[in-house]
Design a protein around this nucleic acid. Sequence first.
DNA 1: CGTACACCCTGGCCGC
DNA 2: TGCGGCCAGGGTGTAC
Length: 280
Amino acid sequence: MPELPEVETVRAGLAPVLEGKRIKRLIVRRKNLRFDFPDNFAKRLAGVAILKLSRRAKYLLLELDNGETLLSHLGMSGSFLALGANETMPAIRKTKHDHVVFEMFDGTSVIYNDPRRFGFMDLFATDEIDKCKFLEHLGPEPVGNQLSASDLKLALSKRKAPIKTTLLDQKVIAGLGNIYVCEALFRANIHPTARSCDLSLEQLEVLVEHIRQVIRQAIEAGGSSLNDFTNADGDLGYFQHSFDVYDRVNEPCKSDNCSAKVERIVQGGRSSFYCPSCQK
DNA sequence: CGTACACCCTGGCCGC
DNA sequence: TGCGGCCAGGGTGTAC
């Protein structure tokens, strides 16, 4: 489900609920999600305070006051819901895949739900979190000033694979997923099958600017809700209404003076949506 | 090292 | 109403 903007939306929603608060009890209803939970997971978190919520790529990081950091990945279908002390579970909500519940001393609960169980949670020493196996090879964040067209040019120089699949590689840019790669390539007028190494520095400058822009706009919109993505308050994002190409096969291109229809191809087993007229 | 592909898992939707 | 096939926001392991 979630790409960078959705994870950032979750982080922003959970921060006021969890930062500075202490965990009373952790309920873990399965022994594993994608991977086994770390040893004594619930026991290690009971009584621990959460200092700070941050995000790296598509990872949510909860810095704890015991010297450890809880790293959480939402996979394709993970979501967190915060329930205040006096709030009750929405009646229509499906609870079958509520796998982890954080019960806080102040009475709030934070529930992790993940039908497909591609998500996972792990614990690492806070001072080594950047070197943990999940984060150590990540490329630059797309927003902020770490991503430059010249660095990207170098990273792509020996890549003959299509730009679409290369941009999904988290070692190249961290946090992009299928939706925002499709959208950024459309805005930059770059065809998804273009060979990565063939793109000029000028094209990459345009691409980098559009990646930054689309990610920022999606964060402002609270992410994209395709089927059921909601933020920590249970609300839907609305960036899906702004898609130019994603999931719009056979619908008209949104560019002025373009009469083409959006097409879909499969690359690396994933759908790519693009305008055959605007993207070269 | 780069690339292609199967696979992990559940659920929604579509055609029959 | 049921069933098979296909699709889905991600990442990893393997073979070449």
